[in-house]
Amino acid sequence: MGTKPTDNGREIPWLDNMVRPVVRLHPAPGPAGPTDSHLGGPMLWPRHEPWPQCDGAGHRGSLDLTDEQVRGLPTPFAAGVQLYRHDFPELPFPDGTDVLQVFLCPLVHDGHWGPDVRLVWRAAGQVTDPLADQPVPVLVDPMYAFRPCVFNPCRANEYPMMCDVPRELLYELEFAKADGFDHANHETWPCLGDATKIGGWTRWFASDPYDMDCPDCGATRVQLLALAAHEDECAECDQPTGEHVGWEFIGGSGALNVLVCPKDVRHTMKLQIE
């Protein structure tokens, strides 16, 4: 996870300027309540506040249903992830908030070909009358099913993939000069592993970074959260790895990455499935 790339074994002087902190969440099945940080458990939600609902406008055919059968079908969002500031102070909480709630519409959507996402930043102390009987979606694509999990976090540093490094810096490296960048030995630049995590860098697999500029202010969006189907071995801790992370996602592999504006997390986010 935190393996530092080298230039054919030599240190890369400017690379430390690109390091990002990451929190690997290591979700595992367990009891989760509305006052806990968790995946797939009940949210701390005010009784009189409308529950997030997808209008179905972006639904694609799934579950053996056609586009016509699912488009425009309103459905409540599923409770996805809840993260409290006291557990994860690394999150960019807006002033006056201390809980991040991530809701998902567990059907395929246009654009990113995965579930839609809503982010809610709130102050836990303002929820004085919580909703106990919480809505659940009627239709759930099996690829996006998940079960209640608790977190066993560890913290580390993460280095970018080659595609996130400016080309002018890569061209200075000896392995790129020797072989030409397009044919360079990428074994000297380790790939990021699969992990459910806060922060860090995006594990680009099916594509290179694109559409990263915030449409509201022009800042380059950064990774807030990744929800992965599997966990690769973690060098920073001895948490279990493998199949049991609570998701069957993208046909059993891949991750849903949520990228946000570093200037204002309430600006337009980007969803990327890799």
Rank of each mutant, 00 (worst) to 15 (best):
M143Y: 10
M143V: 01
M143H: 11
Y144E: 01
Y144S: 05
A145D: 10
A145M: 06
A145Y: 06
F146E: 02
F146D: 08
C149R: 13
C149D: 05
V150D: 00
N152K: 08
P153T: 07
P153K: 06
R155P: 09
R155S: 14
R155G: 02
A156G: 06
N157M: 12
E158V: 01
P160E: 03
M161P: 00
M161G: 15
M161R: 01
M162P: 02
M162T: 12
C163Q: 14
D164R: 03
D164E: 15
D164M: 07
V165F: 08
V165M: 12
P166N: 02
P166W: 06
P166A: 08
R167I: 04
R167V: 07
R167A: 04
R167P: 01
E168G: 00
E168Y: 15
L170D: 02
L170F: 02
Y171C: 06
E174K: 10
E174V: 09
F175N: 13
A176I: 09
A176V: 11
K177H: 14
K177W: 13
A178P: 00
A178R: 15
D179E: 12
D179T: 00
G180H: 01
F181K: 08
F181R: 11
D182V: 14
H183L: 12
H183W: 05
A184V: 08
H186Q: 14
H186A: 12
H186L: 13
E187P: 00
T188S: 13
T188M: 10
P190H: 06
P190A: 10
P190D: 09
C191W: 12
C191N: 11
